[in-house]
């Protein structure tokens, strides 16, 4: 797995994530998020997780984003100010984000002990076969629970 495709998809994802934050219209933000989700699907694909890449596009880009766009059409925002008015100054929020970013950069640059590589390196197809065994054997209960969660959410909406 080389870093080049990951870097290309990831770079585009970060650019459009920043654009999503700064867009004036909600529709623009939603479109930028849609592009970020597509880049992430590309990253999943270049990691060999084809099933997850397809699910990302089907569920996220296909279903959730359509819902969000319908909600934007149904509920046009009625106030023009983009940013929240805070009792605490925005600088405080920017400070929090800055500290988080700095903390991460230290971790990134600190050449600590190398991460443990897998005891065995499986091909993507083998990992996917292992995933189906996990989903419907060892963690079948959790899979059913997630299904019930979606059912409950759908009923709650109605």
């Amino acid at each position: 797995m080389t870093a080049v495709p990951l870097a290309i998809f990831g770079g585009l994802a970060v650019i459009f994530a920043v654009l999503m934050l700064l867009q004036r219209t909600l529709f623009g933000s939603a479109m930028c998020l849609l592009i970020v989700l597509a880049q992430l699907a590309g990253m999943f694909f270049s990691m060999g997780a084809q099933l997850l890449a397809m699910m990302q596009i089907l569920v996220y880009a296909g279903a959730i984003m359509v819902l969000i766009i319908i909600a934007i059409m149904a509920a046009p925002p009625r106030f023009s100010t983009l940013w929240a008015s805070y009792d605490a100054p925005p600088a405080a929020v920017a400070l929090i984000l800055g500290v988080l970013l700095a903390e991460f950069l230290v971790v990134l640059l600190y050449e600590g002990a190398p991460l443990p590589t897998g005891e065995f390196t499986l091909s993507a197809a083998q990992v996917e076969r292992q995933m189906s065994w996990l989903l419907f054997n060892r963690y079948a209960g959790v899979t059913e629970l997630v299904g019930l969660l979606i059912l409950a959410a759908s009923l709650a909406v109605v």
């Binding site: 797995m1 990691m47 060999g48 997780a49 099933l51 997850l52 699910m55 990302q56 569920v59 996220y60 991460l115 443990p116 590589t117 897998g118 005891e119 065995f120 390196t121 499986l122 993507a124 083998q126 990992v127 996917e128 292992q130 995933m131 065994w133 996990l134 989903l135 963690y139 959790v142 899979t143 997630v146 299904g147 969660l149 979606i150």
Partner: peptide, 17 residues
């Protein structure tokens, strides 16, 4: 994928749902 452990992909699928 890095650690050849499908639990990561399984969790990602649940998070998606």
């Amino acid at each position: 994928r890095e650690w050849s452990d499908a639990a990561g992909w399984t969790s990602a699928l649940w998070v998606l749902a």
